[in-house]
Design a protein around this nucleic acid. Sequence first.
DNA 1: TTAAAGAGTGAATGCCTATAACTTAATGTT
DNA 2: AACATTAAGTTATAGGCATTCACTCTTTAA
Lengths: 233, 233
Amino acid sequence: MSVDSVAGRPTRRERQRRQTLAEIKTRAVDQVAAGGAESVSLNAIARAMGMSPAALYRYFASRDALLAELVADAYGSLADALTVAASGGGGAHGALVAVAHAYRDWALANPNSYLLIFQTRSGSGLELEPERVVAAAQRSMDVILSALGGAAGAELGPELAAQVEAWGQRSQVPGLAAGQRYLGLLAWTRLHGLISLELGQHLTATGVDPALLYEAEVQSLLRTARLSSGQPA
Amino acid sequence: MSVDSVAGRPTRRERQRRQTLAEIKTRAVDQVAAGGAESVSLNAIARAMGMSPAALYRYFASRDALLAELVADAYGSLADALTVAASGGGGAHGALVAVAHAYRDWALANPNSYLLIFQTRSGSGLELEPERVVAAAQRSMDVILSALGGAAGAELGPELAAQVEAWGQRSQVPGLAAGQRYLGLLAWTRLHGLISLELGQHLTATGVDPALLYEAEVQSLLRTARLSSGQPA
DNA sequence: TTAAAGAGTGAATGCCTATAACTTAATGTT
DNA sequence: AACATTAAGTTATAGGCATTCACTCTTTAA
């Protein structure tokens, strides 16, 4: 006879396992927040949880596997934040502005998570399972793209247009012109550039307020998005 | 009696020391190139050099101090590459294009060094001595700014303009309008955004060629730079 | 010639990831 | 209800790492 009398799938052990797994991840996230990915230590986690380091390997194949999980979660959290911002109403242009600010807000609120996502080196041995991470990444990008609903696209040459079209074929967000997709790409790369440098303290030497630079870049994107669409913000 | 008979400042020991120091850094740079900053190991360096790990502490106070040195060197190497490109002639607009491409070329040729420079987290304990690093960083920025000689500046609001002006007061490159400095900042943040995402493989999911995106962004900057200046490229 | 400074060694500490063999408790089946 | 199986946890261990300390030996400078 099973422990769960009726048809309760989650047996006692499974519930415990889920909870332990969640606690491990929570502690790891805290470590990331405190000192970045480097300072994630299985030993320290085990110590804090009152169990032996070896036990953690029942939950994660390796430290890198745990980090990969954190990347996926962080990406998901970012996508969630963007989704909330995008659904806040305000029209097409308002959505773009809202998403852009949500992006920076999330990055500043979780700087080490942002760096965890975007600073993971290629050959770092941290081979992320394509499944979850790519899915979460696409979800973020899709939110940005969805925010460009009524916007005019950016100009782009024929070569780029072809590649962007091809990308659009595989995209989850249909019905966007190549120029719109390219505008989404532009938004991402430009805003990420600013945030990345801001988080790395590389802009402090200039003394210029990163918030102002960001706002200016957002307005620049908005100007592009308005180029041939008459609707106001 | 000193070993160097006449007035030769570099005594035998100093020469040896310089060479040892250089070899340490060379090996460390190789490790960075091979596996990123994480994989820099004092033990491994000592092993490869046939000496005990403890001996390295005669040359660097800590592993982080060595990494800081590498950051400064890498920054210098980048600044050198940009300087060469900028002095290649081709007029003001040509210089901007040349510098922009030299920037990406250097990053692609030394991806892990680029990441070493720009991915160093804030609270990573790796507190770089402000002296060398800030100097090298300014040198790179100054090259970009110098390449904007005859260019028209980008539009910018009054708040930003004031801050950029203030930055210009302290800058080594005089005689630039606020709009020009801002254009330099725009160039840096936008191009860095693209390169950072490209190196992190974050653009591969779209299938769009990063080189095309980069070129388009360079052309966009060039268009801004030409806005009110009549000279052709 | 001699004292001081510097380079290097070996040993030890205390982290860390990861594996292996083992014990204990929960599970679900007979 | 007793039992075999599976999972979770343990201890012990191996190997890697940065870092410090006490010590030796050699180069330097007086």
